[in-house]
Design a protein around this nucleic acid. Sequence first.
RNA 1: GGUCCCAUCGUCUAGCCCGGUCAGGACGCCAGGUUUUCAUCCUGGUAACAGGGGUUCAAAUCCCCUUGGGACUACCA
Length: 515
Amino acid sequence: MSRQSVRVRFAPSPTGFLHIGGLRTALFNYLFARRHGGQFILRIEDTDRTRFVDGAVENLLNALSWAGLSWDEGPKDNRIFNVKNVSHRQSDVYSSVVEVGEKGPYIQSERIELYRRYADELVQNGQAYYAFDTAEELTAMREAQTVAKQVPMYDRRALNLSASDVQKKISDGVPHVVRLKVPRGERIVFEDLVRGHIEIDTDTIDDQVLLKSDGFPTYHLANVVDDYLMGITHVIRGEEWLPSTPKHLLLYRAFGWKEPHFAHLSLLLNPDRSKLSKRQGDVSVEDYCLSGYTSEALVNFVALLGWNPGAGNTQEIFSLDALVELFDLSGINKAGAVFDRDKLDWMNGQYIKNMTVEDLYDCSIEFLSEKDFFLSASSECKTKEYLLRVLTLEQERLERLALVGDSHVFFFRTVSVNKDLLRWKNNSDQEIQEALTHMRMVVSNLSLVDWTREKLLEVLLGASGEKRGDFLWPLRISLSGEKKSPPPQDLLWVLGKEESLRRIDMAIALFDVEK
RNA sequence: GGUCCCAUCGUCUAGCCCGGUCAGGACGCCAGGUUUUCAUCCUGGUAACAGGGGUUCAAAUCCCCUUGGGACUACCA
């Protein structure tokens, strides 16, 4: 990179929740900034008042924070952060939001005067013009063009208006927009950092509206003005912006501004290869958080969608810091990537397995606390000491935190044991009862010193000799009551001696002669 | 329809720029193994250069065409 410090931004629209594709865009910007020791800026593009969703900004900030992507400049939620050098906002729209940084405001709805000024400048220069067409007129125009098999495009009818007509309409208060006057017959050429050489003919570019009749700017104007004013050096954004990049380039040129570098990221896809969308699964970061994915796993997974560390590096698990170390735009793929839930589950499981039990306890306790069976569990099953033992076992089989407590057998004082389930192969009632009685004796002879997973296993194996299934199967069933459960030594370990013996006794009693 | 982008196992991908290793890894799936269930873990297996033309002694790699997929085509971003 040059001596000029890198400045990148993530510029979401507060129309809902943070989309998983947005997370990836934010991540790549973050990684690029950190890799090059530059700044990562967050800007809110809320110029469409009809699509504004209450609470969306706060949600966005939250999701980004959860993911661990810290930003240097932009709005922050003061309910979450204690940032120095922050100024409280006047606006009451974002009541809990404060801003950090010298180039603010970072919320576009608070910059509208700016955009108006720049739009006017373009009109004065003759590079943009006023248009007074109504929505109905424009629709009619497009329909006519479509019928005539022409490409729908603004026909510049407003350019036929005389200067005095324009003046009169404006002073009469006729609603109007400002449109960019796109030069004809030119080729716009640029080098995209991930796609390479791109050329587009200006004849295919419509006279884009820059300022809407409600006085708000469109994305195109606001984006370019802000990127320039905020000193953005690299625009890293989704591929959906590729076709409109020439418009943005035209804008930079019209203002006489140095243009930033562009890097267009491929899209995230549904399994059917269409653009990742709701309907085919979760798309908001919040959904994944609530389903029990760790932020580290989600970030790790998303980073590897359309990017790889290259050089034959087959590593798959990367911390955020490790990603920062390795990140390079040259490792970004041009083709779109399907979001594969199976691999995410696997990766999440890897992260869970590598946590300390204490950490697992901290981040899974709230998931567990919501479960009905846990709520109704006895108090001795809710002590941290007990839960830590349960989690030690669950950890190796857990793929998502929301699934914690699946072996809820641990939380019930009573297990209902099906007599037939206790039967290993074709063993007789008597054989089962004898096996259980034997195991009971073995367990009751154990001292507390021997109450470790390893020792318990050793003892059980020793006590069951050649015919392990005959002993271990009924023992396990009597302890868990379930066909599928952790191994007997682990059940014993978690349940404790007293509770274990109680359960074994209950099973043995099933075979007492009842006639 | 028009413009632009893209194309290696089912999925994520390495290899492509600087042509020459049985096209490598991971997820999934299948089989086997371990402390005879489930899970974990280990081992092995399955499976791809979209098609067609060139250029070349040699093409997944370079060029062209076709096909397929996607995005954009708003006073939404």
